[in-house]
Design a binder for these strands. Structure first.
Lengths: 110, 110
DNA sequence: AGTTTGGTTAAGCATATGCTTAAGTAAATC
DNA sequence: GATTTACTTAAGCATATGCTTAACCAAACT
């Protein structure tokens, strides 16, 4: 298993490409095959497969091959990890704002 | 102004590096100067500045130079854009789960 | 058995990224 | 005025990324 930092590297990196995000958007509406994911994109099939490998390697999606078709779906537990990182930053910020608010309120009492 | 897609590219790309995320973590606790951000990192100062440029270019942070010190802080509006993208995927997923739930419930009535 | 469909593997290539060192510049301190 | 501090700019370099085409494989159809 990778540590948290390396996992976040791979996830944010995976989400940093518009083609990969469009695949994730499609998959957030339910599972799809490789060629289904490739259809709206203007690149070659190997390119699509390479993008899928990046997504799968990041843990954001999982795939399963049955017969000759590979079905892809999002791993929501992994997706949550990325969301959580941003959540934590925001909490830290909100805490800071609260403390600033308290400070200003106490200043009013002088 | 950039379109939403290009903006997301830059933001996720910016967050895909552990040094840059550590800078954002530091800044989520309040503004800091360039050398303050550089202190915990093991790279040269120009390298730090290059990371800051990536962050600033993504819109996630803003900087202002007063005298000879440049002060950096997070732009929370931009940060929200990235959070929102993930939020929307999750909503789409939850909607799908709801519909699946409804379907299974209606199946029970047969 | 032959063809189509859905995907895979491999090689190559152009550009982007993440560093480095060396050499500035300009504000603040001595 | 000289030195230190806080960056800044530029050049160079190794590796990573995002594609491409060509060739292949094995399941499904006819």
């Amino acid at each position: 298993m990778l540590n948290q930092t390396a996992a976040l590297d791979l996830m944010f990196q995976a989400l940093a490409d518009p083609s990969r995000r469009s695949m994730v958007e499609r998959l957030s509406r339910g599972p799809a095959s490789v060629s289904e994911l490739a259809k709206p994109l203007t690149m070659s099939l190997p390119a699509v497969v390479q993008h899928l490998q990046v997504l799968e390697n990041s843990g954001l999606i999982r795939t399963e091959k049955i017969g000759r078709v590979r079905t892809c779906h999002i791993d929501w537990v992994a997706m949550k990890t990325a969301e959580q990182w941003m959540d934590e930053r925001r909490k830290s910020w909100e805490l800071r704002l609260d403390r600033l608010g308290d400070f200003l309120a106490s200043e009013d009492n002088h």
